[in-house]
């Protein structure tokens, strides 16, 4: 079931395609454009203007440690990763466990566009126009069983094609996880493209998670396994340093990373004299997702 969450803007609504490709600065979040169908709850997420980053920013400045720890390493080395054929194993507490081909998945899904803020735990941010489908729809394909409470994800691990995995930077393969209600939330996207093109390898081709209210490392790339489980799954950064990277890792300006403040962020693409901007609670998606964490101490469950 696509279009559960109605974006109140798409870049095509705002600017002609040609201008979109050529213009770095793009207005993409004006509330007064009369695009209609704006859910009352969506207003908070889209207040003010969202400026989409350039394709070059999004594809040249990446964290994908399987290809190296430098920001440009993924763009340099990810071309070696073979993404076709691609299969995703969906396993655990599901009715129809098995291996799902990427094309088979695509044939069952309706792609839609989502323009989301993207906030890295390193205190930088972008705005990215994604294409994809809701994770909930993919999980429905496999049939989530009663009793499943968490979803675990795994990235491809192919050391010949992923030079970064030859070093023990993290305990490979990269692993991430969500609570089932987070996974089923309409904002939670499985992305297959950006800027209307298939995902470039450095951005997690061919299929990646996008959870816009969490720090970027939760949005695991190049997924090959999805496991429904009844226990909180181990996650890579949490395993590497649990004090710094919690399981939840919701964007929260009031809970600092032990080594730096999370109160502000720097938008990528602003050059050498870019100013910092305040970080928004749940990355600006508070109205949509705060209810998931009612009664939880967010400083404790960081």
């Amino acid at each position: 079931m696509a279009h559960r969450w109605q974006n109140d803007l798409t870049h095509r609504d705002v600017t002609p395609e040609a201008l979109f490709w050529n213009r770095r600065r793009l207005l993409a979040g004006l509330g007064g454009l009369g695009l209609g169908a704006i859910g009352a709850g969506m207003a908070g997420a889209q207040e003010g203007e969202l400026e989409v980053n350039s394709f070059e920013d999004v594809t040249s400045y990446c964290n994908f440690y399987e290809f190296g720890t430098g920001k440009t390493d993924p763009a340099t080395y990810a071309g070696q990763m073979r993404t076709s054929p691609w299969e995703v194993e969906i396993t655990g507490l599901v009715d129809r466990p098995g291996t799902y081909g990427f094309d088979q998945i695509l044939s069952e899904m309706t792609l839609e566009e989502r323009i989301y803020r993207f906030r890295c735990v390193e205190a930088w941010s972008m705005v990215v126009p994604w294409q994809g489908f809701e994770l909930a729809d993919l999980l429905a394909l496999a049939g989530v069983q009663e009793g499943a409470t968490y979803v675990a994800f795994e990235t491809l691990l192919r050391p010949d094609e992923m030079p970064g995995t030859r070093y023990p930077v993290l305990d490979w393969p990269y692993r991430e996880g969500l609570r089932l209600d987070e996974a089923m939330h309409p904002l939670t996207l499985m992305a297959t493209g950006i800027f209307g093109k298939p995902l470039p390898n450095q951005n997690g081709a061919p299929l990646r998670l996008v959870v816009p209210w969490k720090y970027g490392f939760k949005s695991i790339k190049s997924i090959v396994r999805i496991t429904l489980t009844d226990q909180e799954p181990p996650t890579s950064w949490n395993m590497a340093n649990g004090r710094e990277y919690g399981f939840y890792s919701n964007v929260n300006p009031n809970v600092d990373h032990p080594r730096w403040s999370q109160a502000t962020e720097r938008r990528i693409g602003g050059g050498l004299f870019a100013r910092r901007q305040p970080t928004l609670m749940f990355n600006g998606y508070e109205e949509e997702v705060a209810a998931l964490y009612t009664g939880m101490d967010l400083a404790k469950f960081y």
């Binding site: 070059e56 920013d57 040249s60 400045y61 920001k71 440009t72 930088w124 720097r266 990528i268 693409g269 050059g271 050498l272 870019a274």
Partner: peptide, 15 residues
């Protein structure tokens, strides 16, 4: 390089 884009999309950290 930082001023003219040679240090990539985020020149401050790079510099």
């Amino acid at each position: 390089q930082g001023l003219t884009g040679g240090l990539g999309a985020e020149p401050i950290k790079a510099l």
